[in-house]
Simulated assay, not measured.
Amino acid sequence: MASASEGSVRVDSWIWAVRLIKTRSLAATACRAGHVRVNGDRAKAAQAVRPGDEVRVWHAGRERIVEVVKLVRKRVGAPEAVTCYADNSPPPPAPLEAAVVPRRDRGAGRPTKRDRRELDRLRRTAGPGTER
């Protein structure tokens, strides 16, 4: 068992250990970017968390809101990780509600260099007063 006997653990280490974020360096980067909040305040990577603290992590396009139940320093298996926090996150959005990225038809949009040259040739020969 990887429980911490002391009263606190670094927030980046804890969110990595309970598998909210894949790597410890990603957890530290999320803290530096302001994507991690502890009890409503932006958290630095070395900030301590204690049982009862609320941790909000914005990762992979959604916000996870968890309450610290048990402290762990080392990464634990998924079944044990779930026992270390109480998940108060809203349910993930349905696939239809997720933002749909618009797709552009091939050939629509900005012309290629070849297309621009052809357009220039057409403009030179078709327009009045364009004789050079």
Rank of each mutant, 00 (worst) to 15 (best):
D53R: 10
P111Q: 04
E54T: 15
D120E: 12
H35S: 08
L20V: 04
K113V: 08
W14R: 09
H35G: 01
A98L: 14
L71M: 02
S89K: 08
T125L: 14
V36M: 02
I65M: 10
V72M: 05
R132L: 14
R124K: 15
V49E: 02
D115W: 00
P93R: 15
R62C: 05
A108M: 07
R117Q: 10
P92G: 05
K44S: 11
A33S: 09
K113Y: 01
S5H: 07
V11Y: 03
R32Q: 12
P51E: 05
V82K: 15
G61A: 07
L26D: 01
G107P: 03
P90T: 07
D53E: 07
R50A: 12
L119N: 04
V11W: 04
A99C: 11
D115M: 06
P92M: 09
Y85S: 06
V38C: 11
R104T: 13
A4S: 12
R19D: 08
A27C: 08
A4I: 13
S5L: 13
T112V: 00
G127E: 14
E54H: 08
K74T: 12
E54G: 05
K44D: 04
R64G: 01
T112A: 01
A98V: 15
K113H: 02
A17K: 01
A108E: 09
V36S: 06
R73S: 11
V82W: 02
G7I: 10
A2V: 12
C84R: 09
E118H: 03
K74P: 00
T112N: 00
L26N: 01
P51M: 08
P93G: 02
P111M: 06
A81K: 07
R116Y: 00
E118M: 06
R75M: 04
R106N: 04
A2H: 06
